[in-house]
Structure formats: structure tokens, C-alpha cells
Design a binder for these strands. Structure first.
Lengths: 345, 345
DNA sequence: CTCCTCGATTAAAGCGCTTTAAGTTCTGGT
DNA sequence: ACCAGAACTTAAAGCGCTTTAATCGAGGAG
């Protein structure tokens, strides 16, 4: 019956315990079962009952307790999202994931992966919350680990290709994206187009391949030039200095990502080289950085909104529609032309 | 007794239901009570029991169900954090909040506030998860709303001063921070130091005040000059153009935040004005942006780590140590001198 | 009138855990 | 041998909700 006074709950002062289903049931003289039905919008209760319950709930300021209902229904209606909280692109994805999830009646639990918190803990946290599916943004764990995980809960890898995918993948076609940049540059009249690499990850491999095949497609096999680089601004800067030391600057440079491209820009500007007058520069990701007026970088957008939407859809298909076969959804990235690319010379 | 086959849980294929406390209890021939005791590290069980339980739990891959234990113990041990997922500074705070919370046995639930998701929904989400306290990073809601909220669960406002604070506040002294910048510039020999304002928020007011009083402190009352500005790069750029049109450039400009400062830099560089040769520029926040080699901006750091630690401590004091009187913790920000400030001329 | 049907409502059995009061068993002292 | 008390262990009652099977009336048909 009655409940104890306070407890750890409540704020500054004499906290009133939060109202329970039972309290609103008592207020309208119905059973908790009926109230539950009404509050969840399940058909059954009469219109009159419905109105009275809604009124009472509002008056009491009743808020359902997610933990209790998750326990009882064996459904948490929670999607776990692992994000790198420092990534602007992930931030954008999360924003769209929120709205997409809401539309299908799910809520998000975010678990961040940082320098001090690895993917594994992040994922275990999500599972402890009983998330029904895991949306991993740019996971780095080996495919086999992800496959194991998928046995515990459906896993959707967002933004990273998984080779012999045993699980769902939503990503953009990185090779195509770089191809679009090359096309754009060739269209402007460039022929000596160099590429600053991004290392040995799956994504880096795809982008490099995209560069190579696009060059070949344009009959520029001879001009293919891949420089060692990395994913950071420093890496780009270093690559930029390398070009300068070498003396023979290409007319255009494509970088693995925006950060690297910005490093390039910095190096070039510092050396008094005009961009895009003397050399055109392009990045990848359409990072918030690239939009800054100081950079105004030509880049490729990964279309966060569509990826988010597809990821949620994939999760729902597995959760509510019984899909079991893995699916790979590859979206087309889109070129964003800004001020760092122009006709050569 | 036995449980049903699958359900919505489980990944790709024939999902095994996750083991429960009862399963590990059965495996070692003990009661769930004992197992619970062991797993939570509560003193009581014998060493032998302890070992056997731990072994069995490991073998079964048992993971406690947070929702169930929260329900039973009436304690979720969850701190709700409202963040603006697009803010690099919040990202840093979250990173440190994670480690600080972990040390005291709490876990974090993040709820993001975005263009499409307001503070209110973010907070309601946190409450629905039964978070025991709310850490609001830079809340914008009026003080009265926050005070009401504090009645539902202890609220800690991080980074924003609340006037007649009825609730806990952890922040840095913004006026002092700007004061440090002015001191630094005056120390370099500057006298005409202008300030580009950040609008009408509480923080903007504090920083502007910090500028004014620091100038007075140095006997530079006559030189005080506050330009209309804003919190974005564009606002800074606009302010920069304003200086240029006016013709009489100060030898140093202090901006409300890094974004605005970067706008200034862009405007100046575009006009061929050397920074810091002709004019020194300083920002505020020690944003990731300011660290880019392309900007290398002198700024003020808000010391995310210490703020995070204090915020968690404040929450724990209210939750576990019964503190009820509000507390305001004001930390000193620290100057970060980089390459955009130098001696005048 | 009685028997059914059908819509509205509810009693009751959990969900997976915590917690407290109540046992047990096992000392060691006398 | 007996008993107090320490040291463990556990039965059982929930936590706040969902869900299923059952109950209860009110008509309508026969």
C-alpha cells in the first residue's frame, strides 16, 4: 500500500515520491491494467475511461517508469548507439538517428568511446541497458568480434564496410566519392592530381582504390601518385611540406579526409602558395571544419541523414519484422564544391 | 521455471536467452540471494562461495540486468547528462565525466539537445531513465524552470551561472578569464584593446564585464571599446570587416569565444592584415579549432576535467551524503598563449 | 426467460533483481 | 554436553509495470 517517505530520490527538499500507475488508477477508481492500456494507446478501453485516465495522469504529472516497463514487457525499445563523441560527423549522425528512432517508437542510448574508454566497454554498457540493437558508428573492432556481438543483439555497422559481412552495414561508397572528386577536377582541366593517403584502415583502402580507378578511367594512369599521409591535420601538413620540398607540385591534391586537407591548406598557405590559384585541394567528409570561411574546402558529404535513417530502418527490420539475413546498404556520397578547387593555372 | 525460446532478443539466429541470476544460482546450488550478494561485493558470503559464484557467472557469461536491479534497489546509480552534441567542449566534459562517474560507481546517460530536440525533451528522457541527478551542460532554460526541476532530482548546472541559485552550479570565472587575456595583452605592451561581444546571455555578460573591469584596472578606461558581435564565425567575420571599414584598427582584439575569434582571423587575413604582426587576436574556450595549426589561437581554457570532476562530486554529495543546501563552485580558467598574440607593431 | 456474444474491465502472475528477517550451521567457552 | 553468538545462507516480499486469462454486464436472439 503506502510508500515510504523519501529515499535518494527527489531534489533539494522534501521530495514527493513520483506517482505510479497505481496512483493514477486509484484516482479514477480503475485497475492498473486499464490505466496501462490507455497510456500505451492499446485499443480496448472505452472512450470515457480513456479520457478520465488521461486527465488523472496529467493532473498527477505521471511519467511511466521505463525500467519497470522494460522489465515487464521484455522490450526496452532502446537502440544503443556507440559514438566517438569528438567526431563532428558522428554528432550529425546522432542528431538524425534521434529523429529517425523517434518516428518508429524507439529511444536512443548513447555510449561514447573515447581515448579512455574502448569500444568494448561502450558496447557492454549498451547491452547492460538492454538495448535491443546496436548501432555502431565507425567501429574498429575486427569483423569476427562484431559477428560474435551480433549473436547477442543485432548489430548495424554504420560507415564502415565489413568484408564477409555477417551483419548489417550502412555506409556510403567511399571509392565512388573520391571518384567524384577526381571527375570534378578532371572536368576543370586538371591532369596531375595527387592523392594523400589515409593509412591502412578499410576506409582508407576504399578511398585510395577510388582515386586509382578514377584516374585510370580518365586515362591518367601515368599521373597516379599516392603520398603517404594520415588522418590528422599534422599528417596533411607534413604531406604538404613534402610536395614543397620535392619541388614539383601537382595542380591538384585530393586528401583522405578534411582534416588532412586542412593540414595541406595550412602548409601551402604558409609557403605562400595560392589555393586554388596554383593548386586545388579537396578533402572528404564535409566536416564542420570544411565549412569554415577560413577554409571553404571542396569535399564530399556522406549524407548523415540518410545513413541515420537507413540504420534505424535496418534495426527495426531485424527487431520487429523478423529479418535475419544480413543486409548491406551502400549510399552514394555527394560532392560539395567550395572554394579550394578551380581551373589549373 | 523454464523460459520461452527466443523473443525479440538475440541477434541473427537462434538466440539463447541471456542467463539470469537464477541460472548461476542453480549452477552452484545456491540461492539467488547469495549470488546477488557476491556479485555486488557485499560482505557476508564465504570465500569459497564467492569463488564458486564468480566462476559460474563467468562460465555462463552472466551480465546483470541494470533495469531489474534498478527497479529492485530503487537506485539506478545513473547520472543524466544533457549535452549539446555539436559542442567540442561538451565532448571533452563528457569524456571526463565518464571517468569521474566511474570512480564513484555511477554510470552516465547522455541525452542530446539539438536543433530538433529541445532541453525539455532531453531532460524528460533522462528522468524517464530514472537518473538520480541531472548534470546539465550549459543549460539555457530560465532559472525558475531549473529550480522546479531540482525538485524532481538534484540538478547541477555546469558552465552556466544561475543568479539566485537554488541549485548547484559548477563553472569557471568567465570575467577572470577575460581579465587574464587583457593582462596578457597589456603585458605585451598593448593599449588599444577592443572587445567583440557575444550577445545577451549570462556568459556573454560576465565576459564583457571581465573585459571592462580589466581595462579599468590597467587605467585604460579611455580605450574601452565593445563591438557588437555574436557566437559564430560569421559574427566574428562581420566584426572584423567592421574594424577594417572603420579604418582605425586597435592593436589587439579579444573575442567572446574561439569561433568568433576565428571569424576575425579570417577577415583580417583576407584583407592582408598580419596577425599577430599588425593586430593580436584572442578567443575563449580553447576549442579544438583554436589548436589547429591554421589558427594557433591564443585563448582561455575552461579546464574541462576539473569541472567534470566537481560536477560529479556535487551530485554524489547530494545523492549519497545528504547535502541539501545548494553549492556554487567557481573554478579559475587558465590562459593558453599561442601564436595570435604578440607585441604590438 | 434463458443462453450467448461481445465489449470493457480486472485479478493475478510474473519480468530479473535486491533486501530483510529468519533460519542454519559452526564455533568455542564453560 | 550445552548454549550463546558468530558466520553464513536463504525464503519471501517486493520494485512499477505488462499481459493473459478470466469476469462481468448488457443486450440480442431464440
Amino acid at each position: 500500500m503506502g510508500r515510504l517517505g523519501s529515499g535518494a530520490s527527489g531534489g533539494g527538499n522534501g521530495a514527493t515520491p513520483r506517482p505510479r500507475l497505481e496512483d493514477v488508477a486509484a484516482r479514477v477508481g480503475l485497475s492498473t491494467a486499464s490505466v496501462s492500456l490507455v497510456l500505451r494507446g492499446v485499443p480496448g478501453p472505452s472512450e470515457r475511461t480513456r479520457q478520465r485516465v488521461l486527465k488523472a495522469a496529467a493532473e498527477l504529472g505521471y511519467r511511466p517508469d521505463r525500467t519497470a516497463s522494460a522489465l515487464a514487457s521484455r522490450r526496452s525499445r532502446l537502440l544503443g548507439v556507440m559514438v566517438d563523441i569528438h567526431s563532428p560527423f558522428h554528432a550529425e549522425l546522432v542528431e538524425h538517428l534521434h529523429t529517425a528512432a523517434e518516428e518508429v517508437g524507439y529511444d536512443l542510448v548513447l555510449s561514447t568511446q573515447t581515448r579512455t574508454r574502448d569500444e568494448n566497454t561502450a558496447v557492454e554498457t549498451l547491452l547492460a541497458f538492454r538495448c535491443e540493437a546496436l548501432l555502431l558508428l565507425g567501429p574498429v573492432a575486427p569483423a569476427s568480434v562484431l559477428a560474435d556481438l551480433d549473436r547477442r543483439a543485432p548489430v548495424i555497422s554504420v560507415g564502415r564496410r565489413i568484408s564477409g559481412a555477417e551483419l548489417d552495414v550502412v555506409r556510403t561508397a567511399d571509392d565512388d566519392g573520391v571518384g567524384q572528386i577526381v571527375d570534378h577536377l578532371v572536368g576543370l582541366g586538371h591532369r596531375t592530381i595527387a592523392y594523400v593517403d589515409g593509412g591502412k584502415g578499410v576506409i582508407a583502402t576504399d578511398r585510395r582504390r577510388g582515386y586509382r580507378s578514377a584516374m585510370r578511367r580518365h586515362g591518367l594512369d601515368e599521373q597516379i601518385s599516392v603520398l603517404h599521409g594520415g588522418i590528422t591535420e599534422e599528417a596533411g601538413e607534413k604531406a604538404g611540406r613534402h610536395f614543397l620540398d620535392d619541388g614539383n607540385l601537382p595542380t591538384a591534391v585530393v586528401a583522405y579526409n578534411d582534416q588532412s586537407a586542412i593540414g595541406l591548406l595550412t602548409a601551402f598557405r604558409r609557403a605562400g602558395i595560392d589555393v586554388p590559384g596554383t593548386v586545388s585541394v579537396a578533402g572528404y567528409d564535409d566536416d564542420t571544419l570544411s565549412r569554415l570561411a577560413a577554409f571553404d574546402l571542396t569535399t564530399v558529404s556522406q549524407n548523415a541523414e540518410e545513413q541515420a535513417r537507413q540504420a534505424v530502418t535496418a534495426a527495426v527490420e531485424r527487431l520487429d519484422q523478423g529479418r535475419t539475413a544480413p543486409r548491406e546498404i551502400v549510399l552514394a556520397p555527394s560532392l560539395v564544391v567550395r572554394g579550394t578547387t578551380a581551373q589549373p593555372r
